[in-house]
Design a protein around this nucleic acid. Sequence first.
DNA 1: CCCCTGACACTTA
DNA 2: ATAAGTGCCAGGG
Length: 82
Amino acid sequence: MTRFQEKVYNIVRTIPCGRTMAYAEVAKAVGRPRAYRAVGNALNKNYDPIVPCHRVIRSDGKIGGYNRGQKLKEKLLCEETR
DNA sequence: CCCCTGACACTTA
DNA sequence: ATAAGTGCCAGGG
């Protein structure tokens, strides 16, 4: 586990319910505003349920991807954003 | 060390 | 508004 991913997971973990963060936002939080690609990579490799990666969406407001299936991510967001 | 990949973002056509 | 191209960062082979 690299420090980068560790930081990314930490940030994503701080995302409260009904709240979403863009990959760029997380990247800025970790100190790499231009590393949104790496952030997505980290989350993609991450399979830990302790990290609400489904709260992380694209800056466009789109769902983006999810290691468990975007459909599920969309559903989860809808449920908690409710 | 170099090349490829990836859950993105921005610019231009 | 949508599609395609380019730029970016980190990890793995």
